[in-house]
Design a binder for these strands. Sequence first.
DNA 1: TTGATTTATTGGAACGTTCCATTTATTAGG
DNA 2: CCTAATAAATGGAACGTTCCAATAAATCAA
Lengths: 350, 350
Amino acid sequence: MASRAKATIFDIAREAGVSKSTVSLVLQGSGLIRPETAVKVRKAIEDVGYVYNRGAANLRKAHSNVIGMVINDLTNPFFAELAVGMERVFQSAGIVPFIANTAENPVRQEEVLKSLMEQGVAGLIVSPARGTTPGAFRRLELAGVPVVFAMRRLPESRIPVITPDNHRGAYLATAHLIGKGHRRLAFFGGSSDLVVYHERLGGFHEACETLGIAARDALVIEGETNRKGGMACLETSFALAEPPTAALCFNDAVAFGAMLALRKRGLEPGADFAVVGFDDVVEAEHYVPALTSVAVNTAGLGERAAHVMLKMIQSRTTRAEDHIGAVNLVVRESCGPDRRTRNRPAGGAV
Amino acid sequence: MASRAKATIFDIAREAGVSKSTVSLVLQGSGLIRPETAVKVRKAIEDVGYVYNRGAANLRKAHSNVIGMVINDLTNPFFAELAVGMERVFQSAGIVPFIANTAENPVRQEEVLKSLMEQGVAGLIVSPARGTTPGAFRRLELAGVPVVFAMRRLPESRIPVITPDNHRGAYLATAHLIGKGHRRLAFFGGSSDLVVYHERLGGFHEACETLGIAARDALVIEGETNRKGGMACLETSFALAEPPTAALCFNDAVAFGAMLALRKRGLEPGADFAVVGFDDVVEAEHYVPALTSVAVNTAGLGERAAHVMLKMIQSRTTRAEDHIGAVNLVVRESCGPDRRTRNRPAGGAV
DNA sequence: TTGATTTATTGGAACGTTCCATTTATTAGG
DNA sequence: CCTAATAAATGGAACGTTCCAATAAATCAA
């Protein structure tokens, strides 16, 4: 049916007996063309097997409708959820976002960003890779491409950010642990080159101080932000003279790792050691024991980020308000039954 | 430093005091230009804050170096792993693949495919959405864009496919179950609109027949291919007068669901009911109990698919050999100890 | 020196669109 | 029936690159 070489609007024009300009107008759904002409053209488009050349169009139009999502770890279901949330809103806006993975590698991120720019993206939603240098987004800024950060932020940057309320989430979780009677706590996983880490750790510390846990009873053990990291953290904490009895983990993956390590030692998560996660990924609910975690409404944040992006593009600005999403603690089984009575120090009113 | 409006090769040319053609040559790393000229040009490129316009280039060059990966469910960690495998090889080839998610929705897939074509992709690696119509890839074929299917295939299609050996995997798993002494088996999850389903189910049936399980003792219960589906399958199987004692699940997600449902009933997966999964996702190892599963070397298949794609593009063909990847059963804890002695029918030599 | 050869550089046309300024066809007003 | 206004369709230039053919500069053989 269709000719071998790829068809252009000129082929369509010839087929339909109109000019290329008319075809272009039809393609853009302009109301200027007579309906009958439009159907004639549309038929020709079908007949010649035409495929629109967005590259050529962008050459003239200055701005594309391609939006990129740059994600630091596709393997982490958390980020997949975030991506899904974004896609929901882009889909209803009729645009197809392209996802690119940086695998937590700043060099790869550089390549990805470069490629996306060359492609002429209209905007970028980015969860920056760990160790991203401050200058990594300078080119984007210079080019005036709207960028929003999701979930992670860079130390000094004027780029708008969509994150959960990390500080409050960590505070809530820590308070829960203390409320359960724990007096020697740990913060597992993450590393100080991540701004999120400081936010979550800040909440942890504030809760400890406010609720009467001495600084020396609030351990901090850095580690990878995955299962392996969680296992390692638990092991080092147990090597201590006075191991903690509960841990707030940087994220759910770390928490899963910690629980795994507990099992390996013959200890039961929940009963023998309390674990709280962060992010509340779908698996948290299904794990055994089900993981208590700070729910951040991941998909919702994704949607929010997408909306902000759309608005930025529309109003051709590169600035927007930050958005700090509400969080809440979902209590499940990984912190065990209430031990307050057992562990409470003797004396003390109420 | 850089000018406000976006710079073109003409700006670079002016800055460096050469012609646009020279700049173009430098950009392409041609050996024709004098080294000193090249450095001069490269400096100018830096100075004016130039970003290459791939769209304009493609207009002239006919073929881009953009490769798309169309994935049916990003949320499934299995597909994320597949994507990671592909990326590994694309990265070393210096190209950045764009991932698009169809969320198992043929309509969305249509949009995604269209968008990718308009972008002028050089090739596509696709895991088609369930319910994809046979004609969905006709346009791609007409346009001569190389496509390879990964993990899933379409009933009638000349497009090359990279899949694991589903039949053999299912056979192995079923034989394992039978070897453990189980005599009443079930196949959980999946639905008959998926070619993979028939392949896996075929292996299940062949093992049953070969190893002496009567057809009425080989139940087949269709269902969603996620946790929820697994739970549902288990429930319906237990509603039967004679429930099975073991199940081969369509994939690991279904297996996790089945184990969850068992726990809800107060039964211990492994000891009270044997479960085997398929795909061997990373979580399988870490689950409690650890899931016995058919390992398909997901990332490896992804790499393979990427290699095939690269070769197709290079040799500008749209055809390639199918590739059926080797599988092996990873035995863990979800099938319990050997019950052969307990369940073996009396008599029978050796 | 001169012409032939090689090495570097360059101008122009082309790629497939969009959009503006025009032209042509249609309708309305008097 | 003519003019003015409106509606519909069109040609041309421009977008930023590549690539070919052509030129200019440098080197060589004689």
